[in-house]
């Protein structure tokens, strides 16, 4: 198990968890400072997926299965792992059956806005097709891992909709016990679930199943309360509180001033023009920071 970490790895040292961290500077991200600056914390963590997957293949693994950090394995997933090895690419749809009920249209439109396949569980094998897919996905996420539904983007995820038409040997994995989450509940049976995805769950707001939707409460799904409590206990025992206090390594300029998301967006919108600032985290003369805080009204009129 390898961990893609868009933060300072120092915090994990000696923690006693069976995690090997993939160093960020070995992921082949071109212009890494600029990438980490223009992405928000969430966007950066998502956008490195295809880079981390290719790194895993480079390290000699024949098959790389990606799972989001908020996933818990509840049972035997060897069928998923075996199947992953047999196809260049494996994707897991959010929904496996048409929805019924009065909110069926709204829920399906929600999926159409965010993507047919879930970006939280997927796999590639070390093959020409697997590598070609990763390189294409990398190029899209490096530039555009944003939430902009009106433009056809939902972080890493909507790009995946194109994958079954682009590449041969894309397997649509359809085991209803795998990747159960708020979007396919209450239809899925929790008792049979072997891999649960706690998407949008916050251990500090234990009563809320997900911040992405108010459709379901923990009492709407049998056994959900028990499962979420189990996950929360495990996450708290694994150092949640302490981790919450740690700053994000790429959250401030080198003078300690926090980077507002607006500043990140401004930087992104500058495109190639931002080249002249050099390292975007620096705050010296000629830096992006100086440019940001310059008083527009006092700028000399030429």
């Amino acid at each position: 198990m390898l961990l893609g970490l868009t933060d300072d790895p120092g915090c994990l040292r000696g923690a006693g968890y069976p995690l090997e961290v993939l160093p960020l500077d070995e992921l082949g991200l071109p212009g890494i400072e600029r990438f980490l600056f223009r992405c928000t914390r969430l966007e950066a963590a998502i956008a490195i997926k295809p880079f981390a997957l290719e790194r895993a293949l480079d390290l000699g693994f024949d098959t790389a299965v990606y799972v989001d950090a908020d996933v818990m394995v509840l049972g035997d997933i060897s069928d998923l792992l075996r199947s992953a090895g047999h196809h260049a690419i494996t994707l897991v749809p959010h929904l496996l059956e048409p929805l019924v009920g009065s909110d069926r249209v709204g829920r399906e439109l929600n999926i159409l806005q965010s993507g047919t396949f879930n970006g939280g569980v997927l796999s590639v094998t070390d093959s020409d097709t697997g590598r070609a897919f990763l390189r294409w996905w990398q190029s899209r996420l490096f530039a555009d891992c944003r939430h902009s539904v009106e433009e056809g983007m939902h972080f890493d995820q909507r790009w995946l909709d194109l994958v079954p038409s682009y590449y041969e040997d894309v397997h649509v994995y359809d085991d209803p016990a795998i990747n159960v989450a708020h979007w396919n509940l209450p239809e899925r049976e929790l008792g049979a679930c072997r891999l649960f995805h706690f998407s949008g769950y916050d251990p500090d707001r234990a009563e809320v199943m997900t911040r992405y939707s108010s459709r379901l409460s923990l009492d709407d799904v049998p056994e959900a309360r028990l499962l979420f409590a189990r996950f929360r206990d495990a996450v708290l025992a694994a150092g949640w509180r302490e981790a919450q206090r740690r700053p994000y390594a790429f959250g401030s300029f080198d003078n300690g001033v926090p980077i507002a998301n607006t500043a990140r967006a401004l930087y992104r919108d500058l495109g190639d023009e931002a080249d002249r600032f050099g390292d975007p985290f620096s705050t010296g003369a000629g830096s992006f920071f100086r440019w940001l805080v310059e008083d527009v009204a006092l700028a000399p009129v030429v």
């Binding site: 929904l95 159409l112 396949f117």
Partner: peptide
């Protein structure tokens, strides 16, 4: 766009 869901369903 509804057709996007078809291969999953």
């Amino acid at each position: 766009r509804w057709l996007d869901l078809v291969p999953g369903y």
